[in-house]
Design a protein around this nucleic acid. Sequence first.
DNA 1: ATTGCACACGTTATAGCATAACGCAATTGA
DNA 2: TCAATTGCGTTATGCTATAACGTGTGCAAT
Lengths: 132, 132
Amino acid sequence: MTTPQLTKNQSLVFDVLEKAEGPLSAYTILDKLRDHGFRAPLQVYRALEKLLEYGVVHRLESINSFVACAHPGENCHSHGIVAFAICESCGLVMEFHDHEVDHRLMAWVRGQKFKPEKTTIEIRGLCETCAA
Amino acid sequence: MTTPQLTKNQSLVFDVLEKAEGPLSAYTILDKLRDHGFRAPLQVYRALEKLLEYGVVHRLESINSFVACAHPGENCHSHGIVAFAICESCGLVMEFHDHEVDHRLMAWVRGQKFKPEKTTIEIRGLCETCAA
DNA sequence: ATTGCACACGTTATAGCATAACGCAATTGA
DNA sequence: TCAATTGCGTTATGCTATAACGTGTGCAAT
Ligand SMILES: [Zn+2]
Ligand SMILES: [Zn+2]
Ligand SMILES: [Zn+2]
Ligand SMILES: [Zn+2]
């Protein structure tokens, strides 16, 4: 799927996420955009919904937050399962893909005749800097 | 870690989860325990906190819900990373472990000098019955 | 026995995350 | 022109989780 031209609100939300140091909650995004006219959570959630659909933003389920995709240009959806390592101290997020992990998980679901729709892999811990 | 004797509230919460067909939210558990004197969310969350610590209950991050561990008796914490397949139609949860997946993920974090604390793997989709 | 501590518990209030439901305006394409 | 779609704004509401305070009980050190 190709990414269509972003609307004004979508661009604003995406820019905030891209410039952020780490993952942001929807309400944090809202606060950062009040000067641009944002007043209600739905303005953020509606933009996020589209950005997630386009694959340019990811949702971190374990911390109820959102990050810009680390692979601008490419279509992240086509790389298989996306995995994240999230530093609980500084908020650093590392995004990666591992085809062998994908393969193992998909082999398992095939064995169960389970039909996967969306897979979450999130490793919370401490990044190299924070663990030192 | 061995599981200590559960307190009254912990037992009530655990029993509700064990008898449930699928994962339950904290507030659903609360509702099911009103007849037993539960009045406030904290009574549930405090019990869940301990049950999670003992490893007899798991939290499904992607759906803000809780399930009893599928491996009664054993200590689930010692089996490495726990993975879940969650049917979005009927709520069925399948819990499994895959050492090869663990190995790949841990190899990756080692390469990044990332120190993992807690890893989430959750596959949402449709179970065999619901997909048919 | 008294003191001090740890722990479970109860209650009220509050914080944080997400969506429902309504209406309006601009766009598009029959 | 008309209908359908999409984005947007607003208000209200619902769901998820924790803060802060106080109570009572059991148990160990003094
Ligand atoms: Zn990505
Ligand atoms: Zn860090
Ligand atoms: Zn388990
Ligand atoms: Zn099902």
